[in-house]
Design a protein around this nucleic acid. Structure first.
Lengths: 337, 337
DNA sequence: ATGAAAGCGCTAACAT
DNA sequence: ATGTTAGCGCTTTCAT
């Protein structure tokens, strides 16, 4: 039998009210003597208050939901850790949910989390979300969107945190140009995703700034994975497209591209320079170490919780968006001028 | 204002009992008419029952705690996903907790999870746990240990799931010997960890089987990370230790070793063969693709929850241990005979 | 400085 | 086939 507040109260010869007060440090009016009696009793009996019972009355669970596509995607562990660290330091726990980019799973988790009365939700939405604006119900739980900036027309989204994709891409391509590269391919992820589009725009703008003409044929659209990187790079070589650099939609694409280039007997970066996006853990383990645009993944998670906490504290922020700055990480996959 | 069971009952003109029954599918005795009335009302008002209130009476939260060192460690995302998938399909959610291998954080999370009344806990314990047997209190929450097999003398540990480290190491080294390697170094992780010790034993036993004498000088002890792999391999080369193969305590060590060997102008696998342990995601992205011992990480998480569910269903299993089989993944980092 | 009482939203005997 | 009642373990207003 688990011990309850009643037991402690009885043993201490006081009411549950009094015990409750010392549990919650609303001590001011409690005499030193009783407080100590209660405290030591709680210790002696190894009493831990039931947060479930507490939540029922306070309407607070001190729990935050985290909805992401897949924790195995190397982008998300860092983000998840940022979320957990900030939450934990504020006394919150994380319920974590993987959706595999399926809207149905997203919706289901949204419902479950509402049932569990989480105080808020951090969500990296499926990119397909855009199809179905406003369809989701409001469960009275504030949501902060991270990583992906989706147009959802509901009032339950209270904030957004993401990276400046345009700037990241622009800086990367600019750097490539400055190193003397002139024909730069862009192996993109799906151009249905906003991030991809913004990165494409950054790519274009960097070309334009250097008076390099943009050619549609230099943009290859596919998936955000290694396989696509391989395929695209092989195709580019086989089709005898002339190029000296590749800017990739993300690091996985870049890793695939580097691999297949090397298999084709081309040297990276001597023959072809490659730049990625994200700066996932792997990117500094491959050879050559990958030059890439770092997304502040940990910070993204951290700041999203920060924003949520503000809202939970009652600061009714009208929709807020926080744009984090990417950073070009120069390693060894770009030929030096 | 959130709508409650009372509201639905009032609107349907029935008691809360009746509503409760249809919510929980204890329908048998409810007339079709009222059932439908209630169901449509719930839909209409977008009613979701409060699991918090329910938990208070049922003593079940349908939540499982997951305690791991760090989700950023590439070993854990897979495991976590296995945990989530199995849990989710049984209607449970996961609260996830990172301890950074700190016993204090572990203890704190154990306490918090007990307060939150999770139904069970899956825990990859800190290897340092061994120092402090039996110190942890029993919060009446069943715990399943994964990945690390620690000697904890408490009755709250209801099961253990881990990989056969001995066999994994044995098979790997045996394979190396079969490929003609004769002087095989073992760059180990900390030998305070049981896993390291078991892998060392597997290494020794494979040597013995082939009548290769074991030399203590061939075992280098350090940390489970890339830096240590680099250091150890460099030291081995610089000290002019003669060797043609390295078996590594895990993949990160192997990746570090491969890198530094290549920097020293040695070819992998032509000059030196390298084998890792774990088969983390990265290992097939580096060059050469790493031959390694796959730990069934996803399955480990999956099976741990499986075991927990059995216990929660009342099947009072006495302490159970499930030993999963590793698999040698042959790629390109071992010279072929 | 302390307590009585009500209630959070639900479930579960036990009636009827 | 449905309702009455009690209670899960806590917090909170209002008294005293």
């Amino acid at each position: 039998m688990k011990i309850t507040i009643k037991d402690i109260a009885r043993l201490a010869g006081v009411s549950t009210t009094t015990v409750s007060k010392v549990i919650n440090n609303k001590d001011e009016s409690i005499s030193q003597a009783t407080r100590e009696r209660i405290t030591s009793l709680m210790k002696e009996y190894n009493y831990t208050p039931s947060t479930v019972a507490r939540s029922l009355v306070t309407k607070k669970t001190n729990t935050i939901g985290l909805i992401i596509p897949d924790i195995r995607n190397p982008f998300f562990p860092e983000l998840a850790r940022g979320v957990e660290d900030r939450a934990n330091s504020a006394g919150y726990n994380i319920i974590f949910c993987n959706t595999d980019n399926k809207i149905d799973k997203e919706d289901e988790y949204l419902r479950i989390l509402a049932e569990k009365m989480v105080d808020g939700i951090i969500m990296a939405p499926s990119s397909k979300r855009e199809d179905r604006l406003d369809k989701t119900k409001n469960y009275f739980v504030p949501v902060i969107l991270v990583d992906r900036d989706i147009d959802i027309e509901t009032d339950y989204v209270k904030g957004r945190v993401f990276t400046d994709n345009f700037k990241g891409a622009h800086d990367a391509v600019k750097y490539m140009i400055n190193q003397g590269l002139r024909r730069i391919l862009f192996i993109s992820g799906p151009l249905t995703s906003k991030a991809s589009i913004e990165r494409l725009e950054g790519y274009k703008s960097a070309l334009k700034e250097s008076n390099i003409e943009y050619e549609a044929g230099c943009v290859l659209e596919g998936e955000f994975n290694e396989t696509w990187g391989r395929e695209a790079a092989i195709a580019a070589v086989d089709n005898k497209i002339e190029f000296d650099g590749i800017f990739c939609g993300n690091d996985l694409i870049a890793i695939g591209a580097v691999k297949s280039l090397k298999e084709k007997g081309l040297s990276v970066p001597k023959d072809i320079s490659v730049v990625g996006f994200d700066d996932i853990y792997v990117s500094r383990l491959i050879e050559p170490e990958l030059t890439t645009v770092r997304q502040p993944k940990y910070e993204m998670g951290f700041e999203a919780v920060e924003m949520l906490l503000k809202i939970l504290e009652g600061k009714r922020v009208s929709e807020t968006r926080l744009v984090l700055q990417p950073e070009l990480i120069i390693r060894d996959s770009v030929r030096q001028a």
